[in-house]
Nucleic acid binder design. Structure first.
Lengths: 206, 206
DNA sequence: TCAATTCAATCGATCGATTGATTAATTTTG
DNA sequence: CAAAATTAATCAATCGATCGATTGAATTGA
């Protein structure tokens, strides 16, 4: 029963609150109360409210690019590479939907320049990897020539769309993404759809 | 040179500010200053800050469903119907990207129940129309049997993705979505991509 | 004249941030 | 080793600013 240090508990509380209430909608007092820390501890450790936010984002981004890069260096077929990227990307986003929502909100606001830049850079890197994979696939003749950037928007947009409104996808069925098992089912369903979609779309017709 | 009444100018200013700064990030004082109205005019006409927000959303939603319903009743091929829906949906979203972003942010926050419900209802209706079209297409044998809800997520997600980060799609090219002409080019490119994608994906293999 | 608008002034509440004091932990020194 | 000095961590209290909302008086137009 080891309790986390104050710094960590502030980060955890902040992440939960930011995810649920948004950045502006979360007060430092809430973060303090939720984390059991004194208000001034927030400024002591992170300088400001925005500092907390940036740190939450940093934790999330860390390791994202590494996974993609390792896939890119695999010596496998372009389609297999793309499928791997889709699987990794989907798993990561679906494993923490609220945080992903938060990042999307902030990137669409462009109100806090520093964190917006950080997010865009991270996303840019990810997109570049996917773009290279598809480009190579087309050059090798493994893929049909298509609008690469648009296909990337389709892949990312589909995942985001499912993550943002899972109830709109699953309503009518018994899925409840708050149940881990059901979220896993939804994730698998999403991956299966994207695999089928990009395979059908990218496979050249003889 | 007819100047709009205070009520209207408040709505316009509020829409612009909410779109740029978010709901929490916009103060009633900003709305008052931007619209040239006195602060208390906001409460006089709309009761509260949230009242203004709801009215902005209402204006946007109005007419959305009507367009979809008219398409659904057209006596044309399923694929033509779907293409029409894609065109209409894309045009509408791309014609006012900031407002669309704002609605996405609010729907992902679920913090203001009334307006969240309103948005979800509107979106639900739209999705139902698309779902019916695809269902009919599959039943007629015009479409391959696929995961309908997931394909809808793909269509909506792609459009949203392009609307949310156009710079990530167009960077490297000369497109600037702040120039009307360029935004139109991007819109056409998006529609072309989606048409190609759904056609390839839904057309049964003989 | 009278109801509909408009306004300056102000309400209590809450915001993010800072202060100075206090305690806990660590390092330095004799 | 133990006392002293230093640093890190925590706290209650409070700062000025701003929040959304309200008041009551002034102004307008029919």
């Amino acid at each position: 029963m080891e309790k986390p240090d104050k710094r960590t508990s502030i980060l955890i509380a902040a992440q939960n609150l930011f995810s649920e209430m948004g950045y502006e909608g979360t007060s430092t007092r809430q973060i303090a109360k939720e984390s059991g820390a004194n208000m001034s501890m927030i400024n002591y450790y992170f300088g400001s409210k925005e500092g907390v936010f940036l740190e939450v984002i940093n934790e999330r981004i860390k390791g994202f690019k590494a996974q993609l890069d390792s896939i890119q260096e695999d010596r496998i077929l372009p389609l297999e590479k793309l499928v791997k990227v889709i699987e990794g990307y989907t798993q990561r986003i679906m494993s923490d939907i609220p945080l992903h929502k938060m990042m999307l909100r902030e990137i669409s606001l462009a109100q806090r320049p520093e964190m917006c830049l950080k997010l865009k850079d991270a996303m840019s890197g990810n997109m570049q990897v996917i773009e290279n994979i598809i480009e190579n696939g087309i050059a090798e003749g493994a893929f049909k020539p298509i609008d690469i950037r648009m296909l990337i928007a389709t892949i990312m947009g589909t995942i985001t769309s499912v993550a943002t409104m899972p109830s709109k996808i699953t309503e009518g069925s018994i899925l409840d993404i708050n149940i881990p098992k059901d979220k896993e089912i939804l994730t698998d369903r999403l991956i299966a759809h994207l695999k089928d979609l990009v395979t059908t779309y990218l496979t050249p017709q003889k």
